[in-house]
Amino acid sequence: MEDFFVHLQFSGHCIYIYIYIYIYIYIYIYLEAKTFEQIQNSVWFLEWAERGAKMIKAVMVMNTQGKPRLAKFYEYLPVEKQQELIRSVFAVLCSRAENVSNFVEAESIFGPDSRLVYKHFATLYFVFVFDSSENELAVLDLIQVFVETLDKCFKNVCELDIVFNYSKMHTILDEIIFGGQVLETSSTEVMKAVEEISKLEAASNAITLIPKSASGWRSR
C-alpha cells in the first residue's frame, strides 16, 4: 500500500491523492480503532475527572476570630461544606503558636494530596490550599504578592478594607489566580488590570444612570 501511495504521489493527480488519503485515513482509523471514546475511557481522563485537577484548591482570608473575609474554592462545593472546611481550617490555625512554620498538615481536612500554607498579618489569616503541583515556598511568595497588591490597592490595607470591598477583592484574586492556576505574580501588572476593570465598570455604570432615570420617567 505504501508503494501504491508513492506511485500516486509521483503521478501528480492531486485529487486522487486526497481521495486516497481519506480512504486511507478511514481504513487506518477503522483498523486501529482509535476512537475518541477510547481516549475518553482511558485511564487518566477518568481519574483526573474524579479528582478534579486543580493546582490551587482554595483561597481563604479569615480574621483571628474565625470570621471568613474572603473565600474562594476552585472546585464546586456546597455552601455547607465550605463552611465546614473554613471552620476546621480555623480550628487548626488558631491553635498554632507564633513563629512556627507556615505549613499545616491539610490532608485530614482537604483529602489526599493537599497542602496548606498560611500567613498571619495583623488580624487576618491568609490561607492557600493547593496540591503537589505547586511549590510550598512559591505559594508563600504568592501570598506575599497578594497582600502587597491589596496594600497598593487600598493604601495600607486593613481588615475593614477587605470587609467592604468584596467585589474588588475577588477582582484582584481573579487576576492572580485563574481557575486554580497561578497566572500573574507581579503586583504591578495586577494593579494595572484591576484599575482598567474598575474604570470599565465605572464607565458602564455611568451610562446606566441616564437610561435608567429616563425609563423611570417614562413609566410614570
Binding site: 482509523i29 477503522y30 480503532a33 476512537t35
Partner: peptide, 12 residues
C-alpha cells in the same frame, strides 16, 4: 467503538 468512529470518519 467502531461504529461511531466510522461515522466520525465519514463526517470528516
Amino acid at each position: 467503538h467502531k461504529s461511531p468512529r466510522k461515522k466520525n470518519a465519514e463526517e470528516r
